[in-house]
Each structure stands twice: as C-alpha cells, then as structure tokens.
Amino acid sequence: MISAVVDEARRQLGDLVATRRKAQSADGRQFLVGLLGRGIQASKTPRMHELEGRRIGLGYTYVLIDFDTLGLADHDLGAMIELAEALGFAGLNVTHPFKQAVLPLLDDLAPEAAAIGAVNTVVLEAGRRTGHNTDSWGFAESFREGLAGASMEAIVQFGAGGAGAAVGHALLSLGGRKLTLCETELGRARGLAERLSERFGAEVDATDDPALALAGASGVVNTTPVGMAKYPGLAFPGELLRASHWVAESIYFPADTGVLGGGPAG
C-alpha cells in the first residue's frame, strides 16, 4: 500500500519534472536524470550537468529528489526509483545516505561498483538498473591534481560508508602504505578494512578513537557527511589536526568545510 507521504512525493516530483523538462536538443534527443539523497538543495550538480548537456547539444534535465524536502523515509528509496523509471529517467546519481542502501534494489553492478560495494550512479535502461561507481576514480584524479607528491606513508580516513569505501580504494590504488579507518560504527570500519586489506594486500586498520588514529599520520581524509550544510562541524576534534598533515575532503559544498576552513591547530 502506498503511503500518503510517498503519494504526495510522487505528485511533487511529477510536477517538478514537468516544470523543469524544457531543454530539447536540435536532434530531438532528451535526457531526464536526477540525484537521490538527503539535504541536497545546495547541490551544484544540476547546473553542472545541464550546462554540459547544453554544450554537447543534448536536451538534458536534472532534478533533485531530496528525501528531506519530500518528507520521505529511507525505506521509500525503492518507491522513488520505481517512480523515476515510470517518469522516464535515464539514470540517477546517488548520494548520502543511499550509496550502499541502493545495492539490493539494483539488477546489475559494474565491476568497479561490485569491488567497492557502493554506488553513486544508476543507469536505467531496457527495464534494468545497473549501478556504477565514479567516486573512486574522481577522488583519485583530484588527488593527483591537488596533492601530487603528498606522503602516502600513514593516512587516516574518517568514515567507512559508501563514500569511504570508494575513497579507501582510491587511496590504496594511489600507493597508500598504511590506511586507518576511523568511524563511530566500528564494526562497519572493520568490515571495510578487511575487504580493502584483502584486495590490495595493504595494512588497513580500524578504530573509533580519533586521537589514536591521527598519532603519526601524514594525511587526513574526511569521507563522512560532517561538514555539509546539513551536518556542520568537524568529524574529529579540531585540535588533533597539525600543520604537518595534508588534508583532503570528499564534500564539495560548501567549499570551506570545517576541516578545510578551520586550518591546523598548530
């Protein structure tokens, strides 16, 4: 039975698509895509995607499916994917907190998504849902560009969820020698540490103690949602950050998160 909340969300999303779906390419090709997540109203993704679509001559409409704005529960994820299919979406991006929750709702996983165990992109085609992960590649490319030459001797990564799984793969593929996963849900961190260690043959530890994790670290990466507009603050006590640490952030809005804007403690 469809709840009143889901029914209203369907109406709102249908109205939004009808309003936004104005772009039409000269050759008649048109694509409708969206982003599934929570607290995503400040996302820059729709504008970036639509501008790029326009540049290459595609009719491209990108909408936000914000579970907070629509008043949806996490378990409504399947209903929203079904609605996207019914409305003719070509695909969906997936962000916090659904990058792993979406896995059981898919028909197929691309090799990189299966290895990482998280999805940030779902292609809807021919009645099938195929999950992909571009987070790992994207983080690795950004790291090469912005932190070339940074010490990979001992890295601390905060977070072991969907984004954390992708970034952990990227860090080890970039040559990370030792990776410590610091996560409040210690069991989740241990599970990811075991998978990463098995795949890369690297030393990967798990802890829920930030001070212990950061002792002797060369670099720090935040893959938690802490720092987003919805979750302001730091994923760890700021005084633990030192001038000798290099810092990487998986959050791209706002530009100055707590860990980037606060600077080292000394």
Rank of each mutant, 00 (worst) to 15 (best):
L103H: 14
E141I: 04
E145Y: 03
E141A: 14
T134Q: 00
A118K: 12
S151Q: 07
E145V: 14
P111G: 06
D108V: 10
A114L: 10
H132D: 10
L103Y: 13
S151Y: 00
R128A: 09
L124W: 11
E153N: 06
N120Q: 09
G127T: 04
M152P: 04
S136K: 00
L105T: 12
V123H: 15
F139Y: 13
T130P: 02
G117C: 04
G149W: 03
P104M: 02
N133Y: 08
I116D: 02
V119C: 00
F139V: 05
H132C: 06
V123W: 09
P104K: 12
T134Y: 11
D107S: 02
A114Q: 10
D135T: 09
G127H: 10
V122N: 07
F143S: 03
R129N: 07
T134R: 10
A148F: 00
G127M: 05
L106K: 11
V123L: 15
G138A: 05
I116G: 01
F139W: 06
T121Q: 03
G117M: 07
L124F: 09
E153H: 04
G146T: 00
G149T: 10
S136V: 09
L109H: 12
A113W: 03
G131V: 07
A114T: 15
R129T: 11
R144W: 00
L105I: 08
G131R: 03
L103R: 11
S142D: 14
S142L: 09
M152D: 01
N133W: 13
L109Q: 10
A115Q: 11
A115C: 06
G131E: 06
L106C: 09
S151E: 02
S142G: 08
A113Y: 03
A126V: 07
N133V: 11
M152F: 13
F143E: 03
L124M: 06
V123G: 12
I116M: 01
N120A: 05
V119G: 10
E141S: 13
A126M: 00
A113C: 01
A113V: 01
R144N: 14
E141Q: 14
D108R: 15
L109M: 05
A114N: 04
A140N: 05
N120K: 11
T121N: 05
L109P: 06
L147M: 06
A140F: 10
G127P: 08
S151V: 00
R128N: 02
M152H: 14
D107R: 12
T121A: 12
H132W: 15
E153A: 06
S151L: 01
L124N: 14
A110F: 04
F139I: 05
V123Y: 00
N120C: 05
E112V: 13
T130E: 02
L106Q: 07
W137V: 15
